[in-house]
Design a protein around this nucleic acid. Structure first.
Length: 215
DNA sequence: CTTTGGATCGTCT
DNA sequence: GACGATCCAAAGG
C-alpha cells in the first residue's frame, strides 16, 4: 500500500450520477469530497467541494466543446466520471468532471474546496496562499493545492484507488445552493450555472463579467 | 478592504 | 496572431 485509504464512510457514487446534464450534476456535486492520492511520500489530500460551474458542451457557447471536438477537448466527449483537465493563461491548470453519456460533451468545473485532510501538503504546493481559505478557493488554486495537471487528464474519478476520486461522505448537497453567472466568461454570461455552498469561506471571490453596456 | 494590470504559452483561426 | 472557464502583487481608500 502506498497512500492510506480514506474512512470507511467514503462511498464512490455510481457512474449513472454523472451521465446527466451538467446543470443537474453541478449542484449535486456540492459537499462531495475530492480525494487526491499520490504515489510519492506525500499523504492523502482531501477537500469538500464547495463551488462548481456547469458547461453544457455543444449547446453552450462558453464551453470549450462548443465548436466541436478537438485534441484538447477529447476527454469531454468521452464517458462520464472522467477528468477533463485543461491549461489556460499560460500557467494554470483547471479540472472538470465529464458529464452526459459517452459521445455527448459536457462537464462540471471544480472551482473550490474546503480542505479536509493534508492541508500541510496543500500549503507546500501553494506557497502563495497566506490563509487556509486561499488554499483551494479557485479552479487553478484547487489544482495547485492537489497537484493536478495535464497528466491526470482522462483519469476515472470513480476508481476508489485512483489518483483522483470523488466520494460521498454522507453529507448531502445544500438544499438551497447559492448561484450566479459563471466566472471569467465573455459568452453566455447570464446563465446561472455557478453554484456554491452558502456561507462557506472557501468559495472563490469571483469577478463576474460586466452585464452589458451602460444604460 | 477593493481595484488594477501583468504574467505566460497552448490552442485554435 | 490573438486570446483565454486565472492568479498575484502592488497600489489606493
Amino acid at each position: 500500500m502506498t497512500a492510506p485509504a480514506g474512512p470507511p464512510a467514503w462511498r464512490v457514487p455510481p457512474r449513472s450520477a454523472f451521465a446527466l446534464d451538467p446543470v443537474d450534476v453541478g449542484p449535486w456535486l456540492l459537499n462531495k469530497v475530492l480525494v487526491r492520492r499520490t504515489g510519492d511520500g506525500a499523504g492523502l489530500r482531501a477537500g469538500r467541494i464547495v463551488e462548481v460551474e456547469a458547461y453544457r458542451g455543444g449547446s453552450d457557447p462558453a464551453s470549450h466543446a462548443y465548436r466541436g471536438r478537438t485534441a484538447r477537448t477529447t476527454a469531454m466527449f468521452g464517458p462520464p466520471g472522467h477528468l477533463y483537465v485543461y491549461f489556460t493563461y499560460g500557467m494554470h491548470w483547471c479540472a472538470n468532471v465529464v458529464c452526459w453519456p459517452d459521445g455527448q460533451a459536457g462537464a462540471v468545473l471544480l472551482r473550490a474546496l474546503a480542505p479536509l485532510q493534508g492541508a500541510d501538503d496543500m500549503r507546500r504546493c501553494r506557497p502563495a496562499a497566506r490563509r487556509e481559505r486561499d488554499l483551494a478557493s479557485g479552479p487553478a488554486r484547487l489544482c495547485q493545492a492537489l497537484g493536478i495537471d495535464g497528466t491526470l487528464g482522462g483519469v476515472d474519478v470513480l476508481d476508489r484507488d485512483g489518483p483522483v476520486t470523488v466520494v460521498d461522505d454522507g453529507t448531502p448537497p445544500p438544499e438551497h445552493p447559492a448561484s450566479s453567472g459563471r466566472v471569467g466568461l465573455r459568452q453566455a454570461t447570464t446563465c446561472p450555472w455557478r453554484w456554491w455552498v452558502p456561507g462557506d469561506g472557501n468559495v472563490s471571490r469571483a469577478r463576474l463579467a460586466p452585464l452589458g453596456p451602460p444604460a
